[in-house]
Nucleic acid binder design. Structure first.
Length: 353
DNA sequence: AGCATTTGACCCGC
DNA sequence: GCGGGTCAAATGCT
């Protein structure tokens, strides 16, 4: 029974990987026709290879991709680990369910890609515990960390049980600055939410002027308000190749309640960042307000002023640090018609980034 | 009732 | 042995 389920999951995963590979190949084809940058094409090729590698690893029964973990395993390679193969898909796993689970967990956390964000929020934003990044997290633990004044919270994706999403994050208040939260992300979302976000990105790319409806606004708590200053949006990506930028992008759409008229902008910002980080930093908006470069992405402050999001992403080989500053002034934005609701979209579950 | 959070215990790597 | 990360029972919330 269990075995059958696990086989079905593997098959699903395999199908998903192959489908993804096909879609990527199609994307590549279209990029060839549109004379896109070499980097972009190279990136797509990598992604395709990656998909097939993953599919092969599922087929060959190696199952847990973390098994052949060599000393040279790169962060990207650890992505091979499939959530569906995580667990008892192997016939050898009869010994002790609990033991295996635990061992896998630790092996997993060690090899999973991770990146860190520093999120600065002004008091009263109701964002304690970390800026909502669009995914639904479930807290599963909290620990006092040696030398740290504040405990560290451990969160995992809500869809871990249902969809085997292995993404986790840690949230810790900074000692130096209590208004700053350090978020450490581990693993990559493989849940539907991730694909939804990906599809939203695609949709936005296809129709930049799309006007959507805000539904999230109803979630606002009265005392909640994002207080962003005048700083522009900045995304800096260094020491990281396109693939890693893609993989480690922590951005997605906010489900966090924020002021209704700001939702569109928030998503707008997040979308641009997600698009550029996840989609190999190719310009989505070909004209201002967004100006993108391959290694330094910036958005004109005048267009972002109301949002006032200063965003820095600094990356190293396997870490990605990002700082979101949220000062206290709020001004109105010219980008008012970018209304939007994720709820309005319906996406197939097999459409992952 | 179902889901989320809390918290002490447990396990693993160093 | 210690510290970090996770589990799972108890508890709280909607």
């Amino acid at each position: 029974m269990e075995k059958r389920k696990s086989m079905e999951r593997e098959q699903e995963s395999l199908t998903s990987e192959l489908t993804q590979g096909k879609e990527l190949a199609e994307q590549l084809m279209s990029h060839l026709h549109h004379s896109s940058s070499e980097e972009k094409r190279d990136f797509l090729i990598s992604k395709i290879l990656f998909s097939y590698e993953k599919a092969l690893s599922l087929l060959t029964g190696s199952g847990d991709g973390s098994d052949g973990e060599s000393k040279h395993t790169t962060a990207r390679e650890t992505m091979l680990e499939s959530p569906t193969s995580f667990g008892n898909s192997s016939p050898l796993s009869e010994i002790s369910d609990q033991d295996c689970k635990r061992k896998n967990v630790f092996k997993k956390t060690k090899t999973m890609p991770s990146w860190t964000e520093e999120v600065k929020v002004s008091s009263g934003t109701g964002l304690d515990g970390g800026l909502d990044d669009g995914y639904s997290w479930r807290k599963y633990g909290q620990k006092n960390i040696l030398g740290a004044n504040h405990p560290r919270g451990y969160y995992r994706c809500t869809h871990r049980g249902t969809q085997g999403c292995v993404a986790t994050k840690q949230v810790q208040k900074s000692d130096a600055d209590p208004t700053t939260f350090v978020l450490t992300y581990r693993g990559v979302h493989t849940c539907n939410k991730a694909s939804q976000l990906a599809r939203v990105k695609e949709g936005l790319k296809g129709n930049q002027n799309t006007t959507l409806e805000v539904k999230k606004a109803k979630q606002f708590a009265p005392e909640m308000s994002f207080s962003f200053g005048r700083a522009g949006l900045r995304v800096k990506t260094e020491h990281l190749d396109a693939r890693e930028k893609d993989i480690f992008s922590p951005f997605s759409f906010p489900s966090t309640p924020i002021e209704s008229e700001k939702v569109g902008e928030h998503i707008f910002c997040s979308t641009m960042m997600a698009n550029n980080l996840v989609d190999s930093y190719a310009p989505i908006f070909e004209s201002p307000p967004a100006i993108f470069e391959s290694d330094y992405l910036a958005v004109s402050p005048c267009h972002m002023s109301s949002f006032g999001l200063a965003h820095d992403v600094q990356t190293s080989e396997s870490d990605l640090t990002e700082i979101i500053s949220a000062p206290t002034s709020v001004t109105n934005s010219p980008i008012g018609d970018f209304d939007f609701s994720i709820d309005d979209f319906e996406f197939p579950p097999d459409c992952l980034v």
